[in-house]
Design a protein around this nucleic acid. Structure first.
Length: 447
RNA sequence: GACCCUAUGGUCUAGCGGUUAGGACACCUCCCUUUCACGGAGGUAGCCCGGGUUCGAUUCCCGGUAGGGUCGCCA
């Protein structure tokens, strides 16, 4: 029988990076085994469930490329979905839950208590066989000793998570439950519930959690906790997927950069690590750089335009060729698109703010005549191409008896405001002679 | 408080009874170079502690410590 796995998020308005990784591992397992990946929305908490909150989840998964075989196709009120085990919204599965509560009552496993319904939990330790952690014997805690039974239906009639989760997994014929380790302790309850229904529980695989870099729990308000923030910052889904795969799973042969297809081929539950991992933004950034450098010109242009537009830079009134050429000088230089406005903003606005530290070093009296001379050399360069610009600069440096750096830094500062950036010669060519000379003239008065 | 999981450089990890403890990110030095980035060559840095078992423990067992998780009419 082919595995059936599921990702069952609650629509809270954002998708946690740990949740995304759980979805990824489920998806990888389904794709690796030729199984089925089910998406189920756990929207029992009606108060905070909105169509937008569901869309956030669907959008996040789609961005990562984690397509689901069964589940919602949109977050609309009508809840369209695909698959034979729907509905895939818990809010629409009330009848199933009612029927299952009655079943437990009939079998003597559930009883009314102060308006709620409680499940008669066994007192003996429960063995949790886990594909990642191994066999875990879960004893009752001291509080549970006092009363091991737990509520499965609230006094307002709403069934609780532990119950609906098990009922849905059972009815959707889920074979493998791959989820965060935070659910390990509660798995005893789930196993007891499955047995009460007279069926064998699915196989469990509890995966380690993702922690902040300082080892603390990554909660909603921590930076980088929301999947959407990575897309907003201009990360590539490929890079994030790759990094997420490496957190808690290892190909065991020192490979770091793997395409998602490679991972699908190699992924399996036994290679999942047992200990929590800290989210290392720097390493993600390195992978991002790797993937960014491989981007096609068109894709780089598209993402670059988006990042510039988002920062309020006007690219529309400039010729497309100019914008394209400008962005091409940034390829292989930036790692993430959120760097772009600061890195290449000088192409798209004339009010250049000079880096104060470099200005102190570069805009000094002895450099004024040098820059003046260089300006004249540039003015004479025709055509104004990178090659001609380089030749003009080098000739001027030789004539002045200084190293090229003496001229390079002041010109770069005058034209871009930054201490570093794209290749100076290429950037000047793109900028064009007119703009370049104007910016040099403007800078000259600051000496 | 009880119960559960985990423990290799700063971080992610390979190794799982005998290794000069391997790789990657980050960091440092040098080279390349118009800056930066890339690339190349080096370098600093690690088996949590204490007991066992064993001829021999990073690797196995026990205890401690630390971190994480769970014990809700939240999910």
């Amino acid at each position: 029988m082919k595995p059936r796995v599921r990702f069952a998020p609650s629509p809270t308005g954002y998708l946690h990076i740990g949740g995304a990784r759980t979805a990824l591992f489920n998806w990888l397992y389904a794709r690796h085994t030729g199984g089925t990946f089910v998406l189920r929305i756990e929207d029992t908490d009606a108060a905070r469930n909105t169509q937008e909150a569901v869309e956030v989840i669907l959008h996040g998964l789609r961005w990562l490329g984690l397509d689901w075989d069964e589940g919602p196709t949109s977050g609309e009120g009508s809840h369209p979905s695909k698959g034979d085990y729907g509905p895939y919204f818990q809010s629409e599965r009330g009848e199933n839950y009612k029927r299952r509560v009655q079943e437990l009552k009939d079998k003597g496993f559930a009883y009314e208590h102060e308006g709620a319904v409680k499940f008669r939990m066994q007192r003996e330790p429960i063995l949790i066989p886990d594909l990642v952690v191994g066999d875990v014997e879960r004893k009752l805690t001291d509080r549970e000793e006092l009363d091991p039974d737990f509520v499965i239906v609230r006094s307002d009639g709403q069934p609780v998570f532990h119950f609906v989760n098990v009922v849905d997994d059972l009815e959707m014929k889920i074979t493998h439950v791959i989820r965060g380790e935070d659910h390990l302790s509660n798995t005893a309850k789930h196993i007891a519930l499955f047995r009460a229904f007279g069926v064998e529980p699915p196989k469990y695989a509890h995966i380690p959690l993702i922690l902040n870099i300082d080892g603390t729990k990554m909660s909603k308000r921590d930076k980088g906790a929301s999947l959407a923030s990575y897309q907003e910052d201009g990360f590539l889904a490929e890079a994030l997927n790759n990094y997420l795969c490496l957190l808690g799973w290892s190909p065991k042969d020192n490979t770091e950069k793997l395409s998602i297809a490679d991972v699908v081929e190699r992924f399996d539950l036994p290679q999942i690590l047992r200990h929590n991992a800290r989210f290392d933004f720097e390493k993600l950034l390195w992978l991002q750089g790797e993937y960014c450098r491989e981007l096609s010109n068109d894709k780089f242009y598209e993402l670059g335009l988006h990042a510039l537009a988002k920062s309020g830079l006007d690219t529309k009134s400039l010729p497309a060729d100019y914008v394209k050429a400008a962005l091409e000088t940034c390829r292989g230089k930036i790692k993430i698109f959120s760097e772009l406005p600061a890195y290449a903003g000088f192409y798209f606005r004339d009010d250049i703010a000079y880096d104060p530290e470099l200005a102190k070093k570069s805009f000094v009296p002895e450099n004024k005549p040098r820059l003046q001379k260089l300006r004249d050399a540039f003015a004479a360069a025709d055509p104004f191409t990178a090659g001609a610009i380089e030749a003009a600069l080098k000739a001027t440096a030789t004539e002045l008896g200084v190293k090229v750096g003496v001229l390079v830094h002041p010109v770069r500062l005058a034209c871009t405001g930054n201490p570093s950036g794209p290749s100076l010669y290429h950037l000047l060519e793109v900028l064009g002679k007119e703009k370049a000379l104007a910016r040099i003239d403007r800078a000259l008065v600051n000496f």
